[in-house]
Amino acid sequence: MQDIKIKSVRFDESEVQSLVAENLRDLSERYGGTGDDTPITADDFAAPNGDFLVAVADGELIASAGWRRHGDDAELKRMFTTQTARGRGVARRMLAAIEDSARDAGCRRMILETGDRQPEAIALYESAGYVRVDNFGYYKDHPDVLSYGKSLLPDFAG
């Protein structure tokens, strides 16, 4: 596998927004509509209340993941791996990096929403120790939404 660098970036950078647009197209193909209407701003991912990471290989952005503070929790947003980078462990590396970022900022748990038409995402989260939690957030009342959580600190069982 080629060298992959994971780095923190501004969410509103044009190259990052191109990757986010690819993510939304993927979601739109799975669910219809615009893919995800959750209100998000660049400030959501600004320290100390968030971070946005990308994976870069051969000068190209191949994956993204961000978190934003949700009380004592970090909410995972815009987790995405490009089609050409899938199946090579990039998503697992991104998930570990975004968990580290949130943990370093003092968050106790990572929470996320995903959908029932994303079996590869569900498999990744469950294999990484995420368990179902009560639905929350923008899509909490949608029937195809699945919410997950994982403790980021060893002394927290939530």
Rank of each mutant, 00 (worst) to 15 (best):
F136R: 03
G87I: 06
E113L: 05
E75F: 00
V16D: 01
L112A: 11
H142D: 15
D36E: 06
A21W: 05
D116H: 01
L153S: 03
L112P: 01
P143G: 04
R30P: 00
G50Q: 10
D37W: 04
R108K: 14
L153F: 03
W67N: 05
G129Q: 08
R117E: 02
D100P: 07
N135W: 06
L61M: 15
T82Q: 02
N23L: 15
G50M: 03
R86Q: 14
S18C: 11
V20A: 08
D141R: 13
D100T: 12
L27Q: 09
D3V: 11
S28L: 02
D144K: 10
P48E: 06
E99S: 08
V131P: 06
K150D: 09
Q17A: 09
L24C: 00
A128S: 15
A21E: 15
L53W: 00
L152H: 02
G59K: 05
Y130P: 04
G149Y: 04
G89K: 03
A85G: 07
L152G: 07
R109F: 01
S8L: 13
I62D: 08
T38L: 10
A128I: 06
G87V: 00
E15F: 00
A157C: 08
G158M: 07
W67T: 07
S101G: 11
V131T: 12
F52H: 07
R30K: 14
L124T: 04
A121S: 12
K5H: 13
L124G: 01
A105T: 03
A128F: 09
R69S: 15
A55N: 08
E113I: 04
E22Q: 15
G50I: 10
I40Q: 12
M79S: 00
G50R: 10
D26N: 10
R103L: 09
F136K: 06
L76V: 08
R30S: 12
E75R: 10
H142W: 14
I6C: 08
C107W: 06
E75H: 08
I62V: 14
L61P: 03
R30F: 02
E60R: 13
